[in-house]
Design a protein around this nucleic acid. Sequence first.
DNA 1: GGCCAGGCCCCAG
DNA 2: CTGGGGCATGGC
Length: 268
Amino acid sequence: MLCLQDAKSFAIVSAMNDTLINLEATLFCGQTFAWTKEGSTYEAVLGGRNITFEESDFSALVAEDTMLSHYFDMEWDYEAAETELSTLDPHLAMLIRQYRSIHILNQDPWEVLVSFLLSQNNNIQRIRGMYRTLSKTYGTEVDPGAFAFPRPSQLDCVSEAQFRALGMGFRAPYLVSAISQSHLLEFIGSLDYQAAKELLKSIRGVGEKVASCILLFGYHHMEAFPMDTWMQKVMKRYYPTKDETYFAPYAALAQQYLFHGERLGGRQ
DNA sequence: GGCCAGGCCCCAG
DNA sequence: CTGGGGCATGGC
């Protein structure tokens, strides 16, 4: 019933009642910077645990681990949303056929906040490097060579100069600000989308786009529509008279496919 | 060697 | 409120 031949350079894993997930696209499309992949082995530190698994073992892994099942968002009905978006728009239909079953991860909001502070005027490969630098320098080593991303308390005493010395550049003062205001993250989940976005934007270095990413990747607000340089090109070329309301209520999912398609289609 | 990268801040009009 | 320069750094 499932068209695995659509998967070309990436594998679509079937798990839990035929719920699909495109692991490769989901973990390396720029919503998280925590993962490495060697061969078919994926590895990251999540919630203080070193997670290592083979692609072929993914199904069993999420079946027995509710924390990971939630992280990979295996309960949300992606198939229904993909069907609706495909019916709505032919360009999206093509991208969804090509990259189907990209999930929106449920990540730790603090990691998302820092990750996307680092993301500005930056590229995905270097963001990943900076994320790992912070982990190795300040995070807890949970297994030999495997470092957790540092908690706010582990960064309390780090100065702007120290962050600059680690290569964080002009984002260094934003990190210092985020650490001192990390307590705000506890309230974000209880606010509606707009109120949460305004509160996040009170953190120095968090603007419209970064706030959207935090609300999407940290709080699963599927109405978010992060507008970066790639998405500006996409909207100008394919949807010059439209905005995110065209994709409602699945704007975030549409955005992921459009972003992914533009990035992979453009250069390679 | 410029140009660009999942932008935001700040300041001039 | 809108527009544009500046910002650190590395890869191409």
